[in-house]
Structure formats: C-alpha cells, structure tokens
C-alpha cells in the first residue's frame, strides 16, 4: 500500500513535469505539438552525450540539454508553426513528421540500440522497505518546484500575463498591444526547455532509446486532454491520476496492461466529455 503510494507520487511527479511543456503550447494556440516527444528524446541524448561521452559535470549537461531544447522550440516555431499560419492539422502532421526525422537523426548519430543513463544523483533511500532512488526523488521535487514557479511566473510576470491574454483571445491581445508572435515564441522556447529537462529525468527513469518519444507524448496527450484545455492545476491533478493508475495497474494486475488505462482514459474522455474533466480554464 505504502509502496503504491510512494511509487505513485514519484511517477506522477515525473509525468507532470513531462506534460507541462505540452500543456503550455496547447493552452496558447490550441496546437497539439505532436513532435513534443522529440524534445524529451533530444534532451536525454544531449545529456548522455555531454555527461557520459565528454564527461562534463552533470549539472552543466542538464543545462546544455535545456538550452538545446529551448533552441529547438524556437526553431520549430519559426520554421514550422509560423509559416503554416494556424493550420492546426498541417502543424500537427508536420511536427509528427519532424519527430520521426529527429528520431532517425538520433539513430544516425548514436545508433539504434538503447542506452542506460547513469542517474543524475546517486543513492537510494528506503522508505518503509520500499527503495526510492534519489534520482526519482529529485525528479519529483524538481517537477513540483518547476510547476509552482511556472504557475507564479504566469500569474505575476508581464510576459506570463501576456501569455494568459493570448491564450484567452489572440486577436484581443493583439489589439491591446501584445505581440502574439513574440509571446508564442517565448512559449515554444519554454516548452522546449521543459521538455528537454523532462527528457533527462524520463531517460534516467527508463532508458535512452531513439523511439522513447512516443510514450511520453501519449502521456502528455492524456494529461492535457483529460485535464481540460491547458490548465496547470488540471495538469497536476491528471498527472497524478494517470501516474497512480499506472502504478496500481502494474502492481495489482499485470505490467503489460500499464498503458491500457491511459489509452482507455483518453478515448473515454474525448468521446464523452471533449472539454476535459476539469473544464476549460485559462493557464
């Protein structure tokens, strides 16, 4: 029981971190960035390359992964999202194609086989006989810290308020002198950085593989769809629902059924309650 509780908390924290970057983009432009998983994949690989191949300090490697994610986000916005001018389906298809291209690129550079990432922080602590790696603990704690700071960032800073405004009404925001393009670019950059960071933790939780972008993408989709359009609180709640259900399914039923619940939840919610469980809120 306690085991489930702890594992659930840890996994949910990781999922919240993964999903939040995806949520950001969706709330701003109602765009599903189907290439979102590629940030995670690239973040993980950059970290691997910097820390394990070159031997840079781990924190520097994490920073490099995030910077790379930010650059990717900006490039994606400038080269794909902006030229396609709000054609959602075209953006979704293009980002999906891009993800496959990047996956192939990773295979090209790092090879097809999966790699084990050394934990960012070593060590294990036992809580009621349940092993908890510091690595997962750090992931969960950073996830909470990041989500809270993001929440405050959006509520209190100028650029955060501008993001809120654009998410509510792009044209209205433009009339008030906010440049939607600039806000969008910041959002895409932020999303890329968060995705890359999530990727570092996700890769150290599972492993590094060129196809690792699909799983997190589906989790993010589930969290965003089920949580209602782009609300950070909704993201947090649903990440916990998904995380806990996975842990429960794995420990009570069968490990192979892990994803079945997530898929079923996506389908049920989309068909029965397209606005999401928690309705539509701004950021």
């Amino acid at each position: 029981m306690l085991q489930i509780l702890i594992q659930g908390m840890l996994l949910s924290g990781l999922y919240a971190l993964i999903a939040v970057g995806f949520t950001l983009i969706f709330s701003i432009g109602r765009i599903l960035n189907l290439g979102y998983g590629a940030y995670l994949m690239l973040g993980g690989y950059i970290y691997f390359w910097a820390s394990q191949s070159i031997g840079l300090p781990k924190l520097v490697a994490v920073g490099m992964a995030m910077i790379f994610g930010v650059l990717m986000g900006i490039m994606k916005f400038q080269l794909i999202v902006k030229p396609l001018k709000g054609n959602h389906v075209a953006i979704e298809i293009s980002t999906l194609i891009l993800a496959v291209v990047l996956q192939a690129g990773v295979v090209f550079v790092f090879g097809d086989s999966s790699k084990i990432l050394l934990p960012i922080v070593n060590g294990v602590v036992y809580v009621a006989d349940a092993p908890v790696t510091y690595n997962m603990l750090i992931a969960t704690v950073s996830s909470w810290v990041i989500l809270l700071s993001l929440y405050t960032f959006i509520r209190t800073t100028d650029i955060g308020r501008a993001m809120q405004a654009v998410s509510m009404d792009t044209k209205g925001a433009a009339i008030c002198g906010i440049e939607p393009d600039r806000v969008n670019m910041v959002t895409w950059a932020l999303s890329g950085g968060l995705g890359a960071l999530g990727g570092v933790f996700f890769a150290s939780y599972t492993q590094l593989a060129p196809s690792m972008w699909v799983g997190p993408l589906i989790i993010s989709v589930a969290v965003v769809i089920v949580g209602g359009i782009g609300s950070i609180i909704g993201t947090l709640i649903v990440a916990h629902i998904v995380g806990f259900m996975e842990v429960i399914v794995v420990s009570v039923f069968a490990p192979e059924l892990r994803g079945v619940f997530t898929m079923g939840l996506i389908i049920l919610v989309l068909v029965l309650r397209p606005q999401g469980l928690f309705g539509r809120e701004e950021l």
Partner: peptide, 29 residues
C-alpha cells in the same frame, strides 16, 4: 466512426492514435 460523430480535428486524430496504442497493448495481453 463513434468518436467522429462527436469530435473532429485534432481531437479525432488523437483518439485514433489512442485506438492504435490500445490495440497494441491489448493484442499482447
């Protein structure tokens, strides 16, 4: 077809993606 009676656009695309992943998992179990 069922979801297509209620939702369209990106949402429909996602449901079909979920259908595929669900099928993948169920077939193995």
């Amino acid at each position: 077809l069922l979801p297509a009676l209620r939702i369209r656009g990106s949402y429909f695309a996602l449901v079909t993606l979920a259908f595929m992943e669900l099928m993948y998992q169920l077939v193995q179990v």
